[in-house]
Design a protein around this nucleic acid. Sequence first.
DNA 1: TTGCATTGAGAACGAACGTTCTCTACTATG
DNA 2: CATAGTAGAGAACGTTCGTTCTCAATGCAA
Lengths: 187, 187
Amino acid sequence: MDISEVRKRIVATADELYNAKGIQAVGMDELRSAAGISLKKLYGEFPSKSSIVMAVLERRHESWTEGLDATVQQAGTARERLLAIFDYLAGWFCQDSFRGCGFINSFAELGAISPEVAEYARKHKESFQEFVARLAVEAGAPSYLAPQLAILAEGAQTTAAIAGTSDAAGQARQAAEVLIDVALTSN
Amino acid sequence: MDISEVRKRIVATADELYNAKGIQAVGMDELRSAAGISLKKLYGEFPSKSSIVMAVLERRHESWTEGLDATVQQAGTARERLLAIFDYLAGWFCQDSFRGCGFINSFAELGAISPEVAEYARKHKESFQEFVARLAVEAGAPSYLAPQLAILAEGAQTTAAIAGTSDAAGQARQAAEVLIDVALTSN
DNA sequence: TTGCATTGAGAACGAACGTTCTCTACTATG
DNA sequence: CATAGTAGAGAACGTTCGTTCTCAATGCAA
């Protein structure tokens, strides 16, 4: 079996478990048995739990970025591409496995004691803000619009996760529509 | 010394430590020494760590609610009261001890394994949404405005916490201004 | 077949946690 | 002064975690 196949399975399993139960609540033994692998092989692939956590964060970042990109690309106009961000969120929120943004969660759990995790979460959010900023530029919007939309997207995530407001994405989308239109006409 | 004084000190110390390092990262012994108290007395006041966690959440809820209420009361008009929410956030974010919303953090840490914590976090967010909704009604705004503003407030919190965007409250406030004005004129 | 390297299963280890127990020192009442 | 009760300091306990080690089974080369 290909070595990277084992790594992928470990990281995918860890991603699911960490998302469902929290990182600290999942021990290496639970991960080992869920991945159907020996403890020796686990530690042969990764030197420590924290390296698995970082690999999971990378996987989450790629998965999120690619999914968002794909959804946004399908929209026709620049304005629709900005709104497509919230359609992507809506699709994400209604998944059974949705338990809030994994970066917010890992930051809350480990950010205070792991500079690595804190820095990666920060970079993920930064990359999202830059993504929104590029779309906003394409739409010809003033520079203050992008942070506003990014804040809406963040708020929709935590609202959907904690309050269980399943329509948080729709509400954020409506607000975004107003903000975009005002920003574009006042330009 | 008054018994409730001891309880207050324990909860206040726990609040600080849990906020700074995360709940799971702070052991009972660290809390004991920081509170300057004996382990026996600690367990005389609280039967378990999880009961301390719940007491901390209650304290956070009261502190947040009272502070927000006080700030909002100072504003003159109903529109200004809605915007005062974001002034309150701005003052909170620039505190050195700010490490994100304590309810989001505790939910991320323990929500998956502690139904009590998850439920309390949900109720806190629900109470905030109702608070915003009352202010929105006073301003004569349509019912869709309140969830939008609540999402903005949530997003500002996570953005300030993770991305370190110190002006997240200001950006959210500007967006709120637009949303409020549009909602009020379209009424 | 024989010897050797590799693997898997899980025991073992040290540390840390939440919680309880012990022992000592002090206080207060007769 | 004597003694019973209380409180504090921290040792101890059982569990769990991350990590390493042991050992038997397997596959493979000669």
